[in-house]
C-alpha cells in the first residue's frame, strides 16, 4: 500500500515536472537565436515574402509567442506534441518511430554493461591489487575515457571491415525485410513473426553498437562495484561473519553484494537514462535510426516542436527510471522505505 502511494505521488510529480520541462524548453528554444524559416527554406524561397508568410502561417510561427506557448501547452493536455516543421509528421509519430530502435540498443547496452561491469567489479575487489585487478581497472578506465565515436569507428573498421566477424551497420542484413511492427524491437518482432534466423540477424547487428555504447557505463559500474564491495568488506559485520568462518564467496554473495549494489543501481539507472536519450555519433556511424539522429536533425533544422518532444521524452525516461530505481532500493535493502 505504502509503495502504491509512493508510485501515485511520483506519477503526479511527473506530470507537473513534464509541464515544467515543456515550458523551460519552449522558452529556451525561443530565446536562442535560430529561425526555422532560415533553417528550412532554400535561398530562393527565403527571398520570396509570400513563401515565407505561407510557411510561417502553416506552422503557427506568425502568432505572438504567448499564443504559441498556450496553444502548445493546451495541445499537450491532449498528448498532441505538435507537427514537426522538418518532416510535416506528428512529433508523437516521429518519436514512436525512432524510439524503439533506441530502446533496443539501450537495453542491449545496459545488459552488457551491467553483467560485465558487476562481474569485473567483483573480480577486481576480490583480487585487489593483483595483476587481474590492474587489468580490470585498465579496461574500466579505458571504457570511461574512450570517445564513443572513435571506438565506434575502430570497432567497425576492425571487427566488420577487416576481420568480418560482425555484420555491418544497420539493424538488419539486406536480405531481410523489417519485421511487422509489434514492439518496434527487431529481435522480439522477428521472434513473434516466428523467424529465428531474422531474430539472430537482428541480434548480431546489435552487438557492435551496443558494445561501443556499453563501454562507458560498464567502466562506471565496474569502478562503483569495486569500491563499494571494498567499503562493505571493511565493515564490522563482515569482519564478524568472517570470524565465524564463512567462506569468501558466501561473504560476498550473502552479505556484501546486496549492500554494495545499491549505489550501483543508481549508476545503472543513470546509464540507461543516458542511453535512452540517443547517441548521435554512434547512431550515425552504425546507421541506427534512433532518437539521437532525430534530435540532431531537429536541432539543425530549428524544428522546435520536435526539440521539445525529444526533451520531454528524455525527461520522462529519467523520471520513470528514477522511480523504478527508488522502488528497487526498497526491494534490495529492506531498511530503505519508500517515502
Amino acid at each position: 500500500m505504502e509503495r502504491l502511494k509512493f508510485i501515485g505521488k511520483r506519477l503526479l510529480y511527473m506530470i507537473v515536472m513534464l509541464f515544467g520541462v515543456a515550458t523551460m524548453v519552449f522558452i529556451l528554444t525561443k530565446l536562442i537565436p535560430g529561425d526555422p524559416v532560415v533553417a528550412n527554406l532554400g535561398q530562393r524561397a527565403m527571398s520570396n515574402p509570400e513563401v515565407v508568410a505561407a510557411y510561417r502561417a502553416k506552422y503557427g510561427l506568425d502568432k505572438p509567442l504567448l499564443a504559441q506557448y498556450f496553444i502548445y501547452i493546451g495541445n499537450l493536455f491532449h498528448l498532441d506534441l505538435g507537427t514537426s516543421i522538418r518532416t510535416n509528421n506528428e512529433v508523437l509519430f516521429e518519436l514512436k518511430r525512432c524510439f524503439p530502435a533506441t530502446i533496443e540498443l539501450a537495453l542491449m547496452s545496459i545488459i552488457l554493461a551491467t553483467i560485465f561491469g558487476i562481474l569485473f567489479g567483483i573480480i577486481s575487489a576480490i583480487r585487489r591489487n593483483s595483476a587481474l585487478d590492474q587489468g580490470v581497472r585498465v579496461i574500466s578506465v579505458t571504457g570511461v575515457s574512450i570517445p564513443s565515436f572513435w571506438f565506434a569507428l575502430l570497432a567497425l573498421y576492425f571487427l566488420y571491415y577487416k576481420l568480418q566477424i560482425f555484420p555491418g551497420p544497420g539493424r538488419l542484413s539486406n536480405i531481410y525485410a523489417a519485421p511487422e511492427t509489434v514492439t518496434g524491437l527487431y529481435v522480439i518482432d522477428s521472434l513473434i513473426e516466428g523467424n529465428g534466423a531474422k531474430a539472430l540477424d537482428a541480434l548480431s547487428h546489435l552487438i557492435l553498437p551496443s558494445v561501443v555504447l556499453a563501454a562507458f557505463t560498464m567502466g562506471l559500474i565496474t569502478r562503483t562495484t569495486r569500491s563499494n564491495i571494498l567499503d562493505v568488506m571493511s565493515t564490522d559485520y563482515i569482519r564478524t561473519a568472517k570470524a565465524k568462518g564463512l567462506s569468501e564467496s558466501k561473504l560476498i554473495s550473502r552479505h556484501a553484494l546486496g549492500n554494495a549494489l545499491i549505489p550501483v543501481l543508481t549508476v545503472i539507472g543513470m546509464g540507461l537514462g543516458n542511453l535512452l536519450g540517443g547517441m548521435v555519433l554512434v547512431e550515425t556511424i552504425f546507421n541506427w535510426p534512433g532518437v539521437g539522429q532525430f534530435a540532431y536533425a531537429s536541432v539543425t533544422a530549428a524544428d522546435f516542436p520536435s526539440i521539445i518532444g525529444v526533451a520531454l521524452l528524455i525527461a520522462l525516461n529519467y523520471m520513470v527510471i528514477n522511480t523504478i530505481v527508488d522502488i528497487l532500493y526498497g526491494i534490495i535493502d529492506p531498511r530503505v522505505r519508500c517515502s
Binding site: 555484420p167 536480405i175 523467424n195 539472430l200 540477424d201 541480434l203 548480431s204 547487428h205 552487438i207
Partner: peptide, 12 residues
C-alpha cells in the same frame, strides 16, 4: 548471433 544470420541466408 555474430556468426549466424546474414550472409549465408537466402533472400526472403
Amino acid at each position: 548471433a555474430a556468426c549466424g544470420g546474414g550472409p549465408d541466408a537466402s533472400p526472403e
